Structures are given as C-alpha cells and as structure tokens.
Amino acid sequence: MNYKVVILDIDGTIVPHGKTVSHATKDAIRQLREKNMKVVIATGRAPYFSASIIQETEVDSMVFFNGAYVYHEGKELYRNAIEKNILKNVYLLSHEYQHPLTFLGGTSFKATDLSHPFVVEAFRRDPWKPELAPPQFWMEQDIYQLFLHCDHEEELFYQSKVPELDFRRWSSTGSRTCDVNLSNSNKAVGLTKLLEKLGVAPDEAVAFGDGLNDIEMLSLVGMGVAMGSARDEVKEAANMVTLSAEEDGVRYGLECLGLI
C-alpha cells in the first residue's frame, strides 16, 4: 500500500510514560518528512499539554482532546465542545458523590478540588498543575474534555446516568482518573475531518497507539499499529503490533513497514 500519512499518539507511543521523545523517534519522523510523508499527532491531551512535543516533532497537524479539537497548519479545522446541559448533569452528579472534576477548555484547565488525593495523584508527574475552578468556569467557556477523579469502575455509574459521555480509565492498573468525552467524539472522528482536508483516504494512513482511546483510530486507518505495551483489546483492533515506546516501537514499526 502507498501510505501517505503517519498518525502518532503521544503518551505511551512516541513518549514513554514520564519521559520525552527519544532521538530515535525524532529521527524516524525526520526520515518520514524527507520521503514527503505527512505526520500527524492525535492525542487525548489538550493543546497546552502538548506544546513541547509539537515543538520537538515539528508537526503542524494535530488532533487534541481525543478528537474534539483539530488544528491544521496553525488554523483551527474542527471543534466539538460538550453541551452545557450535559456538563451540568455530570457536574451535579460529581458534586453529590464528592468526586472531583477537571474541566479542560481550549486554553486552560481547572479542577473542582486541588487538595483531593486523586487530583494530586493525577498531576503528580506532570509539569502542569490545575488551578481551582470557579463555580461558573464550565458555563463561561467551551469545555472539550473532562477528567473524572474516582475509584476504579465508579465511572460505570456515571456512564449509566450520562450516556452522552464516554468514560475511559487512564490505565487498568490503579489509575483513579478517567478521560470524559462526548460519546460521539473520538480520535477517528477528528482524524476523518483532517484526512478529508488533506485529501487522503483512511486506508492510505498508518496510525500508532497504545490506549483504549486509540481503538477507533487504529480501526479507521489502513494500517493500525498497536504498541507492545498496549492492552489486548487495543492490539485486537490493530493490524500489527510493534515494540513498546521504551523500545522505540514507532521507529521499529516504521522500519517493518518499509516506511523509513
């Protein structure tokens, strides 16, 4: 297949958890460009969590918030904020059950409780820290994603009460935070908008990912590549499995596909 675009997740894919982009991965991206391959970042992160990665990789087309916000060559291409009535429902539930929320807007993020141990845990390894959310924060600006901070599987209650939203645990091993996005919004949705802009069919794209939020993306493209550290359900959605991020799995996968 004559692939034209390579799509890369960030955490656990081009960035080993808690680390930075390796020289091998940056060199692989450089080689793709030399062969006139378009490189795209597709992440669950917000733009302000991704600035250093974008600078390091020199990528100019990005999908943020698990598909809810798309940029192409410095211009906004697509956005899909969470409706206020849906935000109100989840906010009232979280207040009733005393589960903190972090609201992620286009330019800033704020949490309802900065001292809660689950919130502290969620951001302990990151250079960015949330500010306290004023009561009206979620009403006064567009919110594209939430973090729900609760014990494992408590999100199932929220899922039953707010079916318009999708709750995905950060990891299966002890994480007490979920990504919360619109149920009809995922990386594949945002990428479809971007691929249409590029004039590239989904089967002409390769995508690398490791998380539950990558399943739709890996299923969309012609060649979905799961990282070696991915969960079984992610690997099942992929066409092939490469090495882990710690082992420069993106570079290895690109080499196996003959793209570099």
Rank of each mutant, 00 (worst) to 15 (best):
S22V: 05
R231S: 12
P16H: 03
F167G: 09
Q31L: 11
A51W: 15
L165A: 09
A81V: 09
A237I: 01
K4N: 04
L212C: 09
G211W: 02
K35Q: 07
L87K: 01
E246S: 04
K38A: 12
P134S: 02
N85L: 12
H95E: 15
Y78A: 02
V6F: 03
R125Y: 15
S171M: 11
D113G: 04
F118D: 09
A188Y: 01
K88W: 13
Y69S: 11
H95Y: 14
N36F: 05
E233I: 09
S52N: 14
Y78F: 15
A205W: 00
G18V: 05
S229A: 14
A81P: 12
Q141I: 06
A230F: 10
K110G: 05
P47C: 08
A237H: 01
Y3I: 02
L165E: 09
K110S: 12
C178G: 09
K38S: 11
A207K: 00
I10Y: 01
I215F: 00
E154V: 09
L259T: 08
P134V: 01
G67Q: 06
P163C: 06
E34I: 04
L146H: 08
I41P: 03
L93H: 08
H149I: 10
D203R: 11
I41W: 08
Y69L: 15
E233R: 12
T192P: 03
P16Y: 00
S61R: 14
N186Q: 08
E83S: 14
D151L: 11
F147W: 14
N85S: 13
T20W: 12
M1A: 11
D113N: 10
V59M: 12
L114W: 00
A245D: 00
L220C: 02
L212V: 11
S175W: 11
L220G: 00
D203F: 09
R176M: 13
F49A: 11
A122N: 14
Y144I: 06
T43E: 08
G12I: 02
P134E: 05
K161Y: 07
